[in-house]
């Protein structure tokens, strides 16, 4: 079957989709967006977390056919999504506010970045992405995309979370490397930076 939906602000069309395919498979194998990860495919690890019409879900448990006409934001579009949110001074609940996501053409020609002497040091990141790097919250990194999408959404709803709030919001995302301490650090850091940013902007 054919599925049309929007990913990171760009309309996408996936063809010849098998009816049992998940949104995760379509993103990874058909649209060249492998950032969402395939760690358990049973909704027990959160590595495939994306936003579907603004809501964090496990993309492994969404049937591809169910996303017809809907909006998806993946880790690949997170920086743009956060930027748009900051510029529009609020949540982009639909995901439709981004227009600069990956184009289909770009997606099809996807290859791992890092070539040409790049580590992506100049890449523009969302606050939560930067905080994960700065706090040492990334080791193997396989859980990172899902955690970022979940943590970013929590900070959107709850800009000053308590530690228990952070733990609850991220309790659907398994990490096997870090023991979560540095992930907590990262979320606290992003929240603090966001707050400081807000105060500065408020003062202008």
């Amino acid at each position: 079957m054919r599925v049309n939906f929007t990913v990171n602000g760009r309309p996408q069309e996936a063809d010849d989709v098998w009816e049992g395919e998940s949104l995760l498979y379509v993103l990874r194998e058909r649209l060249g967006l492998p950032g969402s990860k395939n760690a358990c495919e049973q909704g027990e690890c959160g590595s495939c977390t994306v936003r579907l019409d603004g809501v964090p879900v496990c993309s492994c448990l969404v049937a591809a056919g169910q996303v017809e006409g809907r909006e998806v934001v993946t880790v690949e579009g997170l920086a743009d999504y956060a930027k748009q949110r900051a510029e529009h001074g609020g949540a982009c609940g639909t995901g439709a506010c981004g227009s600069s996501g990956t184009s289909l053409q770009d997606a099809q020609g996807w290859s791992a970045k890092g070539s040409d002497s790049q580590t992506g040091e100049g890449t523009e990141l969302s606050p939560i992405q930067q905080a994960f790097i700065d706090a040492g919250a990334v080791q193997c990194g396989f859980c990172t995309p899902g955690l970022l999408v979940a943590a970013d959404e929590m900070l959107e709803r709850n800009p000053s979370p308590s530690d228990e709030d952070i733990r609850e919001a991220l309790s659907g995302n398994l990490c096997r490397c870090t023991g979560y301490e540095k992930i907590l650090d990262a979320v606290r850091l992003a929240a603090a930076r966001q707050e400081r940013q807000g105060i500065q902007e408020g003062a202008v």
Partner: peptide
């Protein structure tokens, strides 16, 4: 929500004729 059905499909436990 797919949270039961898709697990069964992903893990090859179920192949319904129609979803």
């Amino acid at each position: 929500g797919g949270t039961d059905v898709m697990v069964e499909i992903n893990f090859d436990h179920r192949r319904p004729e129609y979803l």
